[in-house]
Amino acid sequence: MPVTEASGVKAWQRRDRRQQFSIWLGWLIGGLVFVQSWRFISEHTIWEFALDAPAQAWDLMVRMVPPRWSYMERLWVPLWDTINIATIGTLLGIIIAFPIAFLAARNTTPSRVLVRPIALIVIVSSRSINSLIWALLLVTVVGPGVLAGILAIALRSIGFIGKLLYEAIEEIDAVQVDAIVATGASRPQQLAYGILPQIMPAFAGISVYRWDINIRESTVLGLVGAGGIGLQLNASVSKLAWPEVTVIFAVIFVTVIISEWVSARVRHAII
């Protein structure tokens, strides 16, 4: 009890002794885990190299300026590819995720025992695996190039859009659906009039948000051969052409800022 009374004086403490103790215990365990993890990392680090970092950083800076702006003309095509990977990949992801979300949502799934777990497994496995890993996998399957990138983005987006969308479907106002059911509407009509209008803003917002993330992700897919500006980045880094790397960074920075602006504007317009 936070309030204790001793010889007529009421004392007050924020927590009683047991609560306080368990909080201390939590911090202690957390601290131990952190220290052990740090020791593990430290053992796997060559500290001579690590301590050299400021010098290395300075060296890198010196080599990165001035940027070789003329390299820009060879970046337009990879940039176009990058945007295409993100956009077409997102579209594919949306097309697949949309029905899956309905199968996964508790209130719209045709079968809670059979269909829902499968839909959830699809969503979880898609979400657990980063798009770069999907790309790694797809490059070995369909070969290097833009197609692997598009499919990687699509496969990763399914889980993201699917999860947020099915949560949105589960949160809809059931009374509105009841009202449509009460008119004698068929299942598809219930969907079209009772559910879709409620989730459309969320759906559009989620899709645009994912597109924005995908632009960022697609800039690195080239590192494993899945097309886009990452291919150029990989080439420039491996031949230590730092002035070119600077130009690529600048291009990525501007692209991401623009996509973020576009996505914010579109979401603002929808909501």
């Binding site: 796997h44 060559i46 950083a57 890198l60 960022r216 992700e217 920075f253």
Partner: peptide
Amino acid sequence: TFQEVIIAILFVKMFGFG
């Protein structure tokens, strides 16, 4: 703005592999 992997490339150059 930058994807984690891009940041990682720079830090690997500075701090070494690992």
